[in-house]
Design a protein around this nucleic acid. Structure first.
Lengths: 207, 207
DNA sequence: TAAAATAGAGTACACGTGTACACTGAAACT
DNA sequence: AGTTTCAGTGTACACGTGTACTCTATTTTA
């Protein structure tokens, strides 16, 4: 029951996943990857691909899940840092920028497939981003005692701004990334301040 | 000198452009379009394509320019409406949503190519978005007497939020689009309020 | 009016693609 | 020990692709 076979299968499955991730870059999107290329990179015959995924879409959705995991891992890291004190906004942005730096291709995958041509991909990415947003929303409600609706609007706006900044930071050198970080921090402060002002009044919108 | 020939050429050039734009949809991106498909849709032999563009990339960049024009046209429309009175934020968002509704494929093109695999495309789209942002920045400085740096940060954040909302509004029915509009308006108010608060202090960041 | 230019069509080719199918050898089961 | 399962291979095929090349008909120029 040890499963020497299942074990090997899992291993080459990972090789396929890693091969796909490894081929992503600023000039190569997942949708431009071919089954044959991925199989070749993984050291497999093209037709062996089918032993693991029914088509490239299935591999792609697995990659999105993978990305979601990485993203949540990132959040845990950020929360740990915050608990040790410091500006919440600054730590969050810095953590996110570190994520971009060491997981550029994963982030690119999320960015691209979010506006891509597959409804399933778009849904998968949006689901991951929503988790991200809702966790931030909870945090804002607890930490800042915000009205629930206001907290959601703030969290949603903040995530949008940070993701957009991440996108800008992808193909840029360290100095520029620093600039982008500072700009983003300031913009998040605007939003936080604005939200705080409005949190007394009743806000009727929620999506 | 009337140029019956040049005239005809311009006409089929437009047919190519329109054919390409017409094939875009939520499940079809520009990069997935083939030269042959576009030529066929335009009623041309594949090889005749080369009489007008050296490759698909050149057509694509033309499309991005086209999109930029449409975007600026949109801004003019918004400004006219604003001059006739009303909430600036609300009118801007409503105008933008109208744009999405009637130019969905053009907006999709911008969204996708902004994070696409061609550096030239990304640069072209970012240039158009920057124009958009700078015009808003000027407006904010004049209308709200804001500090130049704060105005830029606000404009940049606002454009990011609005574009993201546009992306969310693409594949959604009228009611949901209305929801998104209200959410966006409120978020823009947060930013405006926050920026106004900060505009007294000195802000050191500018990108 | 004769010559040159050129938008567009048609043919042809090499290439990369997804995948159907038959096969192999080793692991897993009975 | 004998049988079954199955991850991985190799071959083969039809298809869509970009584009080089030649030819044609018509406009433009000289």
């Amino acid at each position: 029951m040890s499963g020497i076979r299942a074990q090997q299968k899992e291993k080459t499955r990972r090789q396929l996943i890693d091969a796909a991730l490894g081929q992503l870059s600023s000039e190569r999107s997942f949708s431009s990857l071919s089954l044959r290329e991925v199989a070749k990179e993984a050291g497999l015959a093209p037709t062996s691909f089918y032993r693991h995924f029914s088509d490239m879409d299935e591999l792609g959705l697995t990659l999105v899940d993978e990305a979601g995991l990485t993203l949540r891992q990132l959040m845990r890291q950020a929360r740990q840092r915050i608990e040790k004190g410091g500006s919440v906004i600054q730590i969050s942005v810095v953590t996110f920028m570190e994520f971009i730096e060491s997981n550029g291709n994963i982030f690119r995958l999320l960015l691209r497939e979010r506006s891509g041509t597959s409804a399933a991909f778009r849904a998968a990415v949006n689901r991951e981003v929503r988790y991200f947003t809702l966790e931030l929303c909870d945090y804002l409600q607890q930490a800042n005692k915000l009205n629930a609706d206001v907290a959601f609007l703030q969290a949603d706006a903040a995530v949008t701004i940070v993701f957009s900044a991440g996108s800008d930071a992808l193909d840029v050198d360290k100095d520029d990334r620093q600039q982008i970080s500072m700009r983003t921090i300031q913009q998040l402060r605007f939003i936080a301040r604005g939200a705080a002002e409005f949190s007394h009044r009743v806000v009727k919108v929620r999506t």
